[in-house]
Amino acid sequence: MDKQQILETYKVYLLENGKIPTSVYSFCKLLNITESEFYGFYNSLEAIERDFWLQVFESSLTQLEQDPIYQNYSAREKLLAFYFVWIQKMRENRSYVLLKKDNLKLYEIAKNNVLDDFKNAFYKYVDTLIKQGVESREVKERKYISDKYKHGFWLQALFVLNYWVEDTSNNFEMTDAAIEKAVDLSFRLIGEHTMDSLIDFGKFLLTKK
């Protein structure tokens, strides 16, 4: 028995019954392990759900990092590639995600912590992208604001996720288009743009006097 098996069994149970097991006790019976063995892997049923999101994220990242092309991508392209692979992985679990879709709305996420582990890992990942972006001048460092970029990207990831959940187009083509647009917009916002020149100009006028 390992974590993966428990996660799989949990998903299958949920997909077939439409609801979560009544207790850890009843779930352990299904797994044929003792409750105390179970706690060696997860400390609650909810922890399994948290792990699902983290695992999808991590397996996407592992797949990307094995790809030599990915290594040469710019920060913007890396994020694009990530979303594409992430959605691709999610496809294998679409039924499960759809069952849980009410949990994925923005106002729900604030209340539960199902996505927390995934979120923390995502923050770490996006931080490396932002650093790379700053070096390659794709991203502009701005006082006080730069630290918040990652929160923006998190919202973007949730947008992509929710868009895909609602997507009815063939092969989820519209999600592909949505990803391209969303990423393009975000990198335009955090790149050097008119606003910076405007602020710079304003500062210049003020200090000149």
Binding site: A81, F84, V85
Partner: peptide, 20 residues
């Protein structure tokens, strides 16, 4: 043209393999 990752994604989606 469109971005590189989207090209790769189209391959993965419809042929199951990357262009490489």
């Amino acid at each position: 043209p469109l971005s590189g990752p989207l090209v790769v994604n189209t391959f993965n989606k419809t042929l199951g393999k990357s262009p490489q």
